[in-house]
């Protein structure tokens, strides 16, 4: 018998996990390797605000128990960074110099938090929220009655901001173009939404461009945000929350088309016959909007992974899920977003 096919999945988020589970259901014999930079098995990043409600043990955040992976013979490689994918030889090179051959590759690397280029130099002094570790560092550095400055305020960030508010912390939101990402409210709705946030107790600052983030002189903790107009603001932590950009750097030699994300067909295939993509990493042409959409609704991400897995196994299903993109304020001033409704 020939060697079983080796299906490699880059990324261990919803899409990757969904794909692994589906591949195993469809092929009891194949090899499945899941490569992730994370240290933990799959957990839902959108659950991370729960940490501030006392759920700090990562075991409780896991989507499935660890034994799931061994029972389903899914090789979970954590702490592995893919540095290069060679489409010609169908090989993946990892940062630790291991080379892995794949028969099929599904890229579910997702998105990395976008940081406006003007703030790049300040990145080390800001608190991300993209992983359990980052979230726990934020939890550690933000006291219970502390003050957080959030820059941007995408929908994940606003969820966090409201949680922080509910748990006794003070939040200042410095808006920018990515506020409410991935929604793109018009000016009128945006004003209503900001008003609603202000009513909930978030201090909203508009039309201010942050220039630098520093630590207060002589202090060990805390942050100072300086704006381009020369004003400053102090806080315990500064949280950038400006949406996601796809992680594709390692795909440059793969022989697939990339704009900001990986360009895929509705069947989620790339321009390489053995490479597929699902989730936030891919851009799909939307004929109605005449644009490459690269956010497809996080609830659909797992569906995409499962669909890609079936297509890898020979199906020809089309990803045609409408992204329900709606955000509104109700009579009580509460914000409702399709992004949040699980």
């Amino acid at each position: 018998m020939a060697d079983p096919l080796h299906h490699v999945i880059i990324g261990s988020g919803s899409a990757g996990f969904g794909a692994a589970a589906t591949l195993r259901e469809n092929d009891p014999d194949c090899r499945i390797s899941m490569i992730t930079m994370d240290s933990l098995p799959f957990y839902n990043r959108y659950d991370l605000p729960r940490i501030f409600r006392g759920c700090t043990d990562w075991h409780e955040l896991l989507a499935v128990p660890p034994a799931y992976y061994s029972e389903n013979r899914i090789t979970l490689r954590r702490h592995n960074k893919v540095v290069d994918v060679d489409g010609k030889t169908q090989q993946i090179r990892l940062a630790h110099q291991e080379v892995i051959h794949f028969d099929s590759l599904l890229v579910c690397a997702g998105g990395r938090a976008y940081l406006p280029e003007t703030l790049i130099d300040s990145a080390p002094l800001m608190h991300g929220f993209g992983s359990y570790e980052a979230a726990m560092r934020l939890y550690r550095d933000l006291p219970e009655n502390g003050h957080a400055v959030m820059i941007g305020g995408d929908m994940i960030g606003i969820d966090l901001a409201l949680t922080l508010l509910d748990t006794g912390r003070r939040v200042t939101l410095v808006t920018n173009a990515q506020t409410f990402w991935p929604h793109e409210p018009d000016d009128e709705l945006r004003a209503q939404l900001l008003q609603a946030l202000a009513r909930r107790g978030i201090e909203v600052v508009q039309d201010a461009r942050p220039a630098t983030v520093t630590t207060p002189e002589g202090a060990e903790r805390g942050r100072v945000v300086a704006f381009e107009d020369g004003t400053t603001m102090t806080a315990d932590v500064v949280i950038p929350s400006c949406g996601l950009v796809p992680m594709v750097e390692f795909m440059l030699n793969a022989g697939v088309d990339i704009e900001r994300g990986l360009l895929v067909t509705p069947e989620l295939g790339t321009t390489h016959p053995h490479i597929w993509a699902a989730g936030d990493v891919c851009q799909i042409w939307n004929d109605e909007e005449k644009a490459y959409k690269f956010y497809h609704g996080w609830k659909n991400v797992r569906v995409m992974g499962e669909l890609a897995a079936r297509n890898i196994k020979g199906a020809h299903e089309i990803f045609d899920v409408k992204v329900e993109d709606r955000i509104e304020v109700d009579d009580q001033g509460n914000i409702h977003s399709t992004f949040w409704t699980h």
Binding site: S70, R78, V99
Partner: peptide, 21 residues
């Protein structure tokens, strides 16, 4: 070690063998 100097054959790195738990 996650930054060895020489090329490693497939499966030669310990990260491929660590159980999820």
């Amino acid at each position: 070690e996650d930054s060895p100097i020489a090329a490693i054959p497939e499966g030669g790195h310990i990260s491929a063998h660590i159980a999820a738990a």
